[in-house]
């Protein structure tokens, strides 16, 4: 595994980190833009996790936001009720959410395509109903407000302002580095094999269920970390933040950018996450815009913005020569199936 982790220290990734930090510093003067950037960073983290499931493995998981919700409520509960430090509460809640996610998803991992998506939708609906129903833990529809931000260990102060933005930026970058490492590992290639043809993958000796379970667990970790950071960053958690529409939005960021490409979901999150904030008081329009984009992606651009661009650029002869010299290149050219 160390070899793959070391492979993550590539010039591209370091450049990405530098760009993200620069962006965070540039917008830090304006709290509104800084807040939008923070949410965008969490969206990038979520999109990276969803990309592992949807893009690389071909599993449309609509319970993603629900799992993020479990972790968010778990973290908030441990911090606000039990007085734990965020840095102790988050890993516990994230692991808990991932285990719950895998347990809930375990039976559905035998299913594929539409039936997997449907059962994940059922799980998401059950979780959403649960968030409202267990008022004692979640405060129901009202939600939990005044959630304290994460503390900086051993100092007694907590993250705020640019410090928190940089924390989110680093978390987003870390998630991308992890995705990069996974995509370039044998595990990542097994996932792509499962996406392309499950029966064939089984035939060449890949344990399909086990690998799906693993990627589901890893994807749930992304969801959980994002959920814990989201609740503490916004300072508010309600069932609306972790409902089916949130899952769909994250799916859309991945698909709009380009499923199964490394940079696609980043592009998707960068474009789509700020949209609700730009609409200001017309924020209900967000649902209409996102819905229209979902349709547009499926009908017109199954490869997504970045995937389509990549496929186009690759056809240019000079780039073809350049890319053929590069070992490995980008793991997938974005020509994913319509799923």
């Amino acid at each position: 595994m160390r070899r793959y982790l070391r492979s993550a220290i590539t010039p591209q990734l370091l450049l990405l980190l530098a760009a993200a930090i620069a962006l965070a510093v540039v917008v830090s003067g304006n709290r509104f833009f800084a807040f939008v950037l923070g949410i965008t960073m969490i969206s990038i983290l979520w999109a990276a996790g969803m990309n592992l499931l949807t893009g690389y493995t071909g599993l449309v998981s609509l319970a993603f936001a629900g799992i993020a919700g479990i972790s968010a409520y778990g973290t908030v509960g441990l911090v606000m009720r039990c007085g734990w430090s965020f840095w102790l509460a988050m890993p516990v809640a994230v692991l808990g959410a991932a285990v719950v996610g895998v347990l809930l998803g375990l039976p559905s991992l035998r299913l594929k395509g539409f039936y997997f998506a449907l059962s994940s939708l059922v799980i998401q609906t059950v979780l959403s109903l649960g968030f409202v129903y267990f008022i004692g833990l979640t405060n129901g529809d009202t939600g939990i407000s005044q959630i304290p931000p994460p503390d900086i260990p051993l100092t007694g102060v907590s993250f705020h302002g640019i410090g928190f933005d940089l924390l989110l930026t680093f978390a987003a970058w870390l998630s991308l580095a992890a995705t990069w490492a996974i995509a370039h590992s044998p595990f990542g290639r097994r996932l792509v094999a499962i996406r392309e043809d499950e029966v064939l993958a089984e035939a060449i000796g890949i344990d399909v269920i086990r690998n799906k379970m693993l990627v589901f667990f890893v994807g749930s970790l992304y969801a959980g970390v994002g959920g814990a950071l989201y609740a503490t960053y916004v300072g508010f958690a309600s069932p609306r933040s972790f409902d089916l529409l949130s899952s769909l939005s994250i799916w859309l960021m991945v698909a709009f950018g380009g499923r199964g490409t490394f940079m696609g979901p980043v592009v998707g999150a960068l474009i789509l996450a700020p949209v609700p904030f730009m609409l200001q008081q017309y924020d209900t329009l967000k649902d209409v815009i996102y819905g229209a984009l979902i349709i547009a992606v499926i009908v017109l651009m199954p490869g997504g913005v970045y995937g389509t661009l990549l496929a186009y650029v690759r056809r240019l002869p000079s780039l073809k020569r350049y890319l053929s010299k590069q070992r490995g290149g980008v793991p997938n050219d974005g020509s994913v199936r319509r799923s």
């Binding site: 449309v60 395509g113 539409f114 998506a117 967000k286 649902d287 984009l293 979902i294 349709i295 319509r338």
Partner: peptide, 20 residues
């Protein structure tokens, strides 16, 4: 594999209609 594409497509339609 059109059922999964249709499924997500109709979820998009759902989102548009409920938004409107």
């Amino acid at each position: 594999d059109r059922n999964i594409a249709y499924f997500v497509l109709t979820l998009g339609v759902t989102q548009i209609l409920s938004g409107i």
